[in-house]
Amino acid sequence: MAFLTGRCMCEAVTWTYSGDITRNLVCYCADCQRATSAPLTAFLGMRPEQLSWSGDIRHYESSPDTFRGFCPSCGTRLYFRSDRWPHEIHVHAATMTNPDDYQPDAQVFMPSRVKWLDRLPTIPTHDGFQQRPSGPPAHRTALRSG
């Protein structure tokens, strides 16, 4: 049994969970990519009756009977739930108070995995943003050329 806590970026929404974890997945499906603006989503499957929320949560019905919860103040994506899995709610691992405690045990929808993720180990790393690029900011260039 696990006892976990989490929150959104602005801390307006918090959650606590005490129960068994039903899934620890990294998902590469196109829906999760679009919903989170990220190449993957890591989530924990939890029993809804053992999960407590505090704060205002808004919902988006991303497909029939499938909802994605988010904080209306900061926009943090909090969870995914669907009538296909009525006894689970899939909470985003990045919202955990200690996200380093997350231990995925499966990756799903591998055909949708973006290919550039394979290159990450060969790309230079930095402890913060690297130095500012030379030339005009890309957004100004794009606006002028459009």
Rank of each mutant, 00 (worst) to 15 (best):
H90C: 12
M96T: 05
L4E: 01
D118I: 08
M46R: 05
R77P: 12
A42Y: 05
L40A: 10
D65H: 14
L44R: 02
L117G: 03
V91P: 00
R34N: 13
S63L: 02
A42C: 09
W15L: 04
G75M: 03
G146T: 05
A30C: 09
L44Q: 06
T76V: 03
R119G: 14
S134C: 04
R23T: 08
S62I: 01
F43G: 11
R77E: 11
D65K: 14
S54N: 10
P72V: 03
H92W: 09
Q103M: 09
G55K: 07
T141R: 04
G75P: 01
L78N: 03
R140F: 10
V114D: 02
F109L: 11
P111K: 10
S63N: 05
C8T: 01
A2S: 08
H92D: 15
P39L: 05
G45R: 00
A138M: 09
W53R: 04
P48V: 00
N24W: 12
R119I: 12
P39E: 03
W116K: 11
F67W: 09
T97K: 09
P72Y: 02
F70G: 02
A35K: 05
G69Y: 02
I57G: 10
F129I: 12
G135F: 08
Q33W: 04
P133K: 10
P99C: 02
C74W: 01
G55Y: 07
